[in-house]
Amino acid sequence: MVSPVLNEHFYTGAFLVREANGYLSRDKGELVNETTADVSYEAGLVLSDVTTAVADFVVGGSNTGNGTIGAITVADGTTPTNYEIVFTDATDFTVSGPDGSELGAGTAGTALTVGGLTFTVTAGTTAFVAGDSFTIVVVPGGPKQYVPYTGAAAAAAILFDRVYVEADTAKHVAVVTRMAEVNGQELCWDPSVTSAANASTLQSEALNQLAALGIVAR
């Protein structure tokens, strides 16, 4: 009689060497199965963050002009943060990032694409003056969403527990996103990574990206 073949899966959190006290190293999120087949994902799977972002604007408190900003389109991968718009005269303005660096310049009435945002500032019945401002606030559009790391987007988390996700659906999961030391030999990778000609490069890049977030592989 031939004995059945038994496959042992990675245990919950077995890849962890140590993590921060309590649940500080972990977050809740959604694991998205973008394929047309049901998939069982192993604990220790390296993930990318594909959360979409949305944007709104806040009018400067001392604006003279009463213009506004229309719909704001946010490109995939845009970092949630604040962008400052400051007018230099009645029609021209600059756009700066959170660190104060200038990202671009635009003109009222003309669509501008800068920093992953596309928008149009529209003049009102009262003209803008130098110093008038807006703040564009970019925030996640919902729960953090993750997919298996393939190299297309930066590695951002590690799946804490094995989970089964049906085709074209998502499931709530726990992920490790910060302040952790992990066993690199017990991390799991998407087949597109392990079968790639540059697999070692992709894995090295992912580990460096995780290290930048405070997740160190040993």
Rank of each mutant, 00 (worst) to 15 (best):
G77M: 03
T78R: 11
F87D: 07
T88I: 11
A90K: 14
F93A: 12
T94S: 11
S96N: 11
P98T: 05
P98E: 03
P98V: 02
D99Q: 12
S101T: 09
E102P: 07
G104E: 13
G106H: 06
T107H: 13
A108Q: 08
A111H: 01
L112M: 11
V114H: 01
G115A: 07
G116W: 00
G116D: 05
G116M: 01
A123M: 02
A123N: 02
T125R: 05
T125C: 03
T126P: 09
A127R: 11
F128D: 00
F128Y: 14
V129L: 09
V129Y: 03
A130M: 11
G131S: 08
D132E: 14
D132F: 10
S133Y: 04
F134D: 15
I136S: 01
I136E: 05
P140F: 07
G142D: 09
G142T: 10
P143C: 05
K144M: 08
P148L: 04
Y149V: 04
Y149R: 06
G151T: 07
G151E: 02
A154P: 03
A154L: 07
A155W: 14
A156E: 03
A157L: 03
I158T: 02
I158L: 02
F160K: 05
R162E: 06
Y164V: 01
Y164Q: 14
V165C: 10
V165G: 13
D168I: 04
T169S: 15
T169V: 02
K171F: 10
V173L: 06
V173R: 04
V173D: 09
V175P: 07
V176G: 13
V176Y: 15
T177D: 04
A180P: 02
A180D: 06
V182P: 03
N183W: 11
G184S: 15
Q185F: 14
Q185I: 07
L187S: 10
W189M: 03
D190Q: 08
S192V: 08
S192E: 08
S192F: 03
V193D: 00
V193N: 02
T194W: 03
T194K: 05
T194S: 13
S195V: 00
A197W: 06
N198F: 09
A199Q: 13
A199T: 07
A199K: 15
S200E: 14
T201L: 14
Q203F: 10
Q203P: 01
A206S: 15
